[in-house]
């Protein structure tokens, strides 16, 4: 068994595609109309084009909003993405206008920071422990 897909609820798929590709730097993998305005929309890391896909999933279900609002209030990220250098990525993304709720924080072997994906979620970036 393999983990080939994970998902993040997004307020607006078009806006989310822009943020996850143009800002974060992922690339679009699948974009399939599902009827109505919803799309099967996934992105992958350019470093792993055949790796785990991230589904940008519509947040229309009524349970999503209270769940996400509560997490965001407490600063809890929905996902974690690995980067080589958190400080460098923090500066790059800040330069693109990304808002962080937690600045880079070194905690033993791990450095993390938390940003707002503008689609309703907080995302943690982290260096992988070596």
């Amino acid at each position: 068994m393999k983990i080939h897909l994970t998902s993040v609820f997004v307020d607006d798929q078009t806006k989310a595609l822009h943020f996850y590709t143009e800002i974060l730097g992922f690339v679009k993998k699948h974009d399939i109309p599902l009827g109505g305005q919803d799309r099967w929309l996934t992105v992958v890391s350019p470093a792993e084009p055949d790796g785990t896909e991230l589904l940008l999933e519509p947040a229309g279900h009524p349970a999503v909003k209270p769940y996400r609002d509560a997490l965001v209030t407490d600063g809890i990220p929905a996902h974690q993405f690995a980067v080589d250098d958190v400080q460098a990525e923090y500066e790059r993304l800040r330069g693109l206008g990304v808002h962080f709720t937690q600045e880079p924080l070194e905690m033993g072997p791990v450095t993390t920071a938390v940003l707002d994906d503008t689609c309703g979620n907080l995302i943690q970036i982290a260096t992988e422990p070596r």
Binding site: D74, G75, I76, P77, Q102, L105, M107, V114
Partner: peptide, 9 residues
Amino acid sequence: QTLFEICSR
């Protein structure tokens, strides 16, 4: 700090 950051620290 957010609650999450305090917990992490």
